[in-house]
């Protein structure tokens, strides 16, 4: 997904907020989950389904489904690669890095000189550090002389992974 973030905010109705707060930790694992959610909120099953469709269509919900723990899927090497890329070229090159099949997230972010010189962040997941190292070499080759320095920050532990929490 090449997400151009739309600028216009989409305010939630009170009913939509209550619905999102009710489901954000997880859907009920029951044969009719939307009916169960509706019973708690005083909404009909079809109304819950219609509101969720609408929130998906507006992009407030990106998708509904399983959020895996990538360590448990065997992606034990998670390298956040960071690159100091020429400001004139970073947008063109960022698009190219983001298009590499193994890059799951790619962003331009601010530098914090002198402590932090990197302005391009590309997350590469692999089943071993050797795999991530090969990915990083491919990114390095793509960036060429436009990149002055890079580093790879491997994750050693997930401290928290709850996702977004709206307040009721």
């Amino acid at each position: 997904m090449n997400a151009a973030v739309p600028l216009s905010p989409q305010p939630l109705s009170a009913a939509e907020r209550a619905l999102l707060v009710a489901v954000q930790r997880g859907l009920p694992l029951l044969p009719r989950p939307y009916r169960a959610v509706g019973e708690n909120l005083g909404l009909a099953e079809m109304e819950v389904i219609r509101m969720l469709q609408e929130l998906l269509a507006r992009g407030v919900i990106r998708r509904i489904g399983a959020i895996p723990n990538h360590y448990a899927l065997g992606y034990t090497a998670n390298g956040m690669s960071v690159w100091d890329v020429d400001d004139e070229q970073v947008d063109r090159l960022g698009q190219a890095v983001g298009a590499l099949p193994f890059v799951t997230h790619c962003y331009r972010r601010p530098r914090h000189l002198p402590d932090w010189r990197y302005n391009l962040f590309a997350m590469a997941h692999g089943k071993s550090r050797a795999e991530v190292t090969a990915h990083v070499a491919a990114i390095s080759a793509l960036l060429g002389p436009a990149c002055q320095a890079h580093d790879v920050l491997y994750s050693t532990r997930i401290l928290k992974k709850t996702g977004v929490r709206l307040t009721g």
């Binding site: 999102l20 489901v23 954000q24 990106r62 489904g65 959020i67 723990n69 448990a72 996702g163 977004v164």
Partner: peptide
């Protein structure tokens, strides 16, 4: 899968940017 931690969640992925 949830109890074993293979899935961290089963539900909607919320895009807060769309809410401002």
């Amino acid at each position: 899968l949830l109890a074993d931690g293979v899935l961290s969640r089963f539900g909607p992925l919320i895009q807060v940017e769309r809410l401002g």
